[in-house]
């Protein structure tokens, strides 16, 4: 009966996550990299305990944790989307279905890990 219906594409879902990740990265990405590349090493050494406690407190806060989760998960989905399409552009002889399953599967798995580890803090 349903055989005449076209197969639904996953592209709208993939593109929504890609778009959300792209916007988040464009606004917050440079600041985030600047913090880990420049700010963290420039902190006075010898008091690692208080930096650890401060970042732990920030990510244990529901808002901090949620922001960290979205920053990680959407970045994974954004970059995986581009990498999958990049493989296609480079004519890598792998089926789009396989690349999609591997790519978005990896992004889903990494996002789950982020959720588990953030909730476990």
């Amino acid at each position: 009966m349903n055989r005449s219906l076209p197969r639904r594409s996953q592209e709208p879902v993939a593109w929504s996550l890609f778009g959300a990740g792209g916007m988040l990265l464009a606004f917050l990405g440079p600041a985030l990299v600047a913090i880990t590349l420049l700010v963290l090493p420039a902190l006075p050494a010898g008091d690692g305990a208080s930096v650890h406690a401060a970042i732990l407190a920030a990510l244990r806060h529901p808002l901090g944790g949620l922001l960290a989760f979205f920053a990680l998960a959407l970045t994974f989905f954004h970059t995986v989307h581009r990498l999958c399409h990049g493989l296609h552009d480079l004519h890598v002889p792998l089926s789009a279905r396989l690349v999609g399953w591997l790519g978005y599967g990896t992004a889903t798995l990494l996002s789950l890990l982020a959720a588990v580890w953030l909730l476990g803090l």
Binding site: L25, G29, L32, V33, T36, H52, I55, L56, L59, A68, A71, L72, T75, F76, H78, T79, V80, H81, R82, L83, H85, G86, D89, L110, L113, A114, W117, L118, G120, L121
Partner: peptide, 23 residues
């Protein structure tokens, strides 16, 4: 532009690793 995804993916992996180590 498309290639920007590769370093950003690896960087996000580093941050994910950091979340685990933080805990």
């Amino acid at each position: 532009r498309e290639a920007t995804a590769l370093p950003l993916f690896l960087y996000a992996l580093c941050l994910l690793y950091g979340v685990r180590e933080l805990g």
